[in-house]
Write a protein that binds this DNA or RNA. Sequence first.
DNA 1: TTTATTATTGCAACATTGTTGCAATAAGAG
DNA 2: CTCTTATTGCAACAATGTTGCAATAATAAA
Lengths: 125, 125
Amino acid sequence: MKRRSTPAQQAILNMLKAADSALSQDMIEQQLKGETDRVTIYRVLNRFCEDGLAHRITSDEGKFYFALCKNCQQQHHTHDHFHFRCLSCQKVECLEEKVKVSLPLGYSAANVNCWVSGYCANCSA
Amino acid sequence: MKRRSTPAQQAILNMLKAADSALSQDMIEQQLKGETDRVTIYRVLNRFCEDGLAHRITSDEGKFYFALCKNCQQQHHTHDHFHFRCLSCQKVECLEEKVKVSLPLGYSAANVNCWVSGYCANCSA
DNA sequence: TTTATTATTGCAACATTGTTGCAATAAGAG
DNA sequence: CTCTTATTGCAACAATGTTGCAATAATAAA
């Protein structure tokens, strides 16, 4: 299945690039001012994930956020870092700090999802 | 507003005690075999939280889980530990290990929500 | 350039999780 | 036993995400 280039995809890709942080579907819909259907936004974002262009993270509020892959290897998204969500400006970002956990004996980890919510440098100033 | 003792509340409280782990509304509904309404279960659980009897954690799947408070002080729920969710038996538990994060300069943390999903000792055996 | 193929879109509909309004029920005080 | 009102059940709604299907539009082919 070959991909085609469409205005919606371009717009969303540019938003993700410009944001330099993770965005949720509703943030994108707002910025697009209803020009693009909810469903289309989800489908574009999911397509980006399938193509290894972006990755999806489940926030501590239970919503999905999408961000362009940077340090992720092909086919192997790295999420072993903390995520930060600002309670004031809503910005979501990946922190440098890696998550370190030691599990009880016999346990094995498949995935890690760590969130810190609070106030970013801009908002706590 | 004085609380009253009802069968639904007793049943749910006993389930939480017996489980010795965190349960979600749908797990409770299943065990109660539809004898109690969905809404009632949510209201009972929220009441437990208000009364400081239980606390609520948002899982990495975006659902709420409820667990009886053990080490939590009155009015001050401690969640600064990792949570584990078994992908096989669905069990959710609080790990001993505390979360340690250092945020970028100027950032302040209000809340921490850390999850590891994988296979527990029983299920990975 | 025109036509044909089919990826993409928009709309309606649905699923899941959680909440709220309101009338009916029932716990517990008097 | 009666009264007050906390609690319940049902219907309805809200937010988030997915699926089916016909219409649209990118791109390849003629």
